[in-house]
């Protein structure tokens, strides 16, 4: 199908984009990669009356690392992350996710910030954002505010970005050398939504105990979830088989999936725990550590 009609504007700065969004109200949307928005418009699930294209906004196309943080602009595409040596070397979780988001062609166009703003309950990036403790900078006509992942992710397809606002930058803490991460995803085929997926990031102390843990799960509820109880179980502990089982059980307990062609609710609830366990094990392996008996 063809999308419903809309008026098309090109914004060349965040200020211009925010001003256009303010002028046109709730039915106006930012158009970045468009890889979720355009299909939604074709199905008439979304019918914005105004699109503000930001693709020519050169100043938004940056990946910079400084002072222990990675800053990414609004037009950075998944493929920019996939092919970045910096990301591959220093940001294991982001690197893992950028290899499996959608399909290779979509990754050349889709943006990280666009995916986060779309906030699909089966999306890959929201789970990673939760596990990595990332933040979003949101701009409106009065200025900017910083929102952490837990506040940013509000509900299915709903984020902290309000009418007249634009997400302009996402900030990911630079993991320490003692940090291992892993993204575990089951999908029926490339390009399909995840059947279930888990993002895990573990920072260890010198003695091998867990300093900080981040776990996000997706496609198993109305929105991506942070497995806070599981993270708390890991903190300060040596990672044993029994501990992994307990953390996996916390993920399964939180999951409230719906049955569809990808699997029954029971299966998804079970398998998301398995994915969390595999994610913990791979995070440790990547640090050259083994699970304690």
């Amino acid at each position: 199908m063809f999308p419903a009609s809309f008026d098309f504007y090109r914004a060349h700065s965040a200020e211009e984009a925010v001003s256009l969004l303010g002028e046109h109200g709730a039915d106006s949307r930012i158009l970045a990669g468009g890889q979720s928005l355009i299909p939604a418009m074709r199905y008439r699930l979304a019918q914005p009356t105004v699109l503000v294209d930001i693709n020519q906004m050169q100043a938004a196309n940056y990946i910079t690392e400084e002072n222990g943080e990675l800053r990414i602009g609004a037009t950075v595409r998944d493929s920019d992350l996939e092919f970045s040596d910096l990301i591959r070397t220093n940001y294991q979780l982001m690197s893992d996710v950028s290899d499996v988001v959608a399909d290779p062609i979509v990754r050349f166009r889709g943006t990280l910030i666009g995916s986060l703003c779309h906030n699909d309950p089966s999306g890959d990036w929201p789970a990673a954002m939760l596990a990595a403790r990332a933040k979003m900078i949101i701009q409106n006509k009065d200025g900017k505010r910083v929102v952490n992942a837990d506040e940013f992710i509000v509900d299915s397809f709903t984020t902290a970005v309000e009418e007249g606002e634009m997400a302009v930058e996402t900030i990911w803490p630079t993991p320490s050398k003692n940090t291992g991460a892993s993204y575990q995803k089951i999908e029926r085929k490339v390009g399909d939504y995840a059947t279930a997926a888990a993002a895990v990031q573990l920072e260890l102390n010198e003695d091998g105990t867990v300093k900080e843990a981040g776990i996000g799960i997706t496609a198993v509820s109305y929105v991506a979830l942070r497995v806070a109880e599981g993270e708390a179980l890991l903190r300060g502990q040596k990672v044993t088989r029994n501990l992994i089982k307990a953390v996996a059980a916390e993920a399964s307990k939180m999951a409230d999936p719906i049955a569809d062609g990808r699997g029954s609710a029971e299966y998804k609830k079970e398998v998301v725990g398995v994915l969390v366990a595999k994610g913990i094990m791979q995070s440790l392996e990547r640090l050259g550590r083994k699970v304690e008996a």
Partner: peptide, 13 residues
């Protein structure tokens, strides 16, 4: 060098 799905991009873009 950039492959795109031309059904998922507006001509104006």
């Amino acid at each position: 060098k950039i492959p795109v799905k031309s059904c998922t991009m507006f001509a104006v873009q």
